[in-house]
Amino acid sequence: MEANAAKADRRAERAAVRRRRDRRGVAIAALSTVVVIGGLTALVLTSSGWPAVRETFFNATVFKESFPDVAKAFWLDIRVFMIVEVAVLALGLIVALIRTSVSPAMFPVRLLAVVYADIFRGIPTILLVYLVGFGVPALANSTAEGSSSLSWLPTEPVVLGAIALTLSYGAYVSEVYRAGLRSVHPGQRDAALAVGLTERQAMRHVVIPQAVRNVGPPLLNDFISLQKDVALISIIGVTGEAFQVAQIQASSDFNYTPLLCAALLYMAVTIPLARMLDRWDRGRVR
């Protein structure tokens, strides 16, 4: 009996120690948060430049005035993003499939795919937007000697910007897909062949679906970055893009608050995407 009582005491004592430890943890986290965030805020707010920064970057009146225009322009960003995303998914998969093919007849195409991935991953996206944005219209241009044989090429800046982004991100995404294709166990292909599928059917119904599933999170990560890079198309004269509209408004009255509007809009898309990504990753671990 006494032994049992001692056991019960120890059990209660252990629970009490655990409770104390948990409470102390919460208290420490709260305190350190207040100290760190409060300290940083105080540091910024008490600096001599803060009033000027508040006036030029966080001006409520300017914000209210410019937000509707920037938000309207942001709709173009969203549309470009969606179209480019679909094109990138398709291009990346095609390039990855070509690179993982083994048929000798595919050799030249495979070589091209390797060169493509190397070149377009090697060029900064901003530079590529310039090159496509100004280079392609030059090719399409008719001169005094006659009309260009490439006059059918697009010259619309927004189309060229979208093409540049697709080329750049397609190269990245092809590598992501390639990793995904490699991550599918060879036994899966064997099993698909063993049930009588052809190589092509095995790829289509067994390997690719699993590869795409495996690379969902890294793909989403690339799309977060693509969504922000849509702003780059403003440099080749795409009118009505959110960053460009914000920039014009900012330079007309020397107040940068419109840029903050644009930043908030970008975050409104990228942060939910990032949370989705976290969720997805957690789900996969479980």
Partner: peptide
């Protein structure tokens, strides 16, 4: 018919689709 040591079921398909994939496609 081949049965593998490590089963090699198709993890992206449910049980019945594992069985029907070959019957339908092949």
């Amino acid at each position: 018919g081949f049965v593998f040591q490590a089963y090699n079921l198709f993890p992206h398909l449910n049980v019945i689709d594992n069985v029907t994939l070959g019957m339908r496609r092949a």
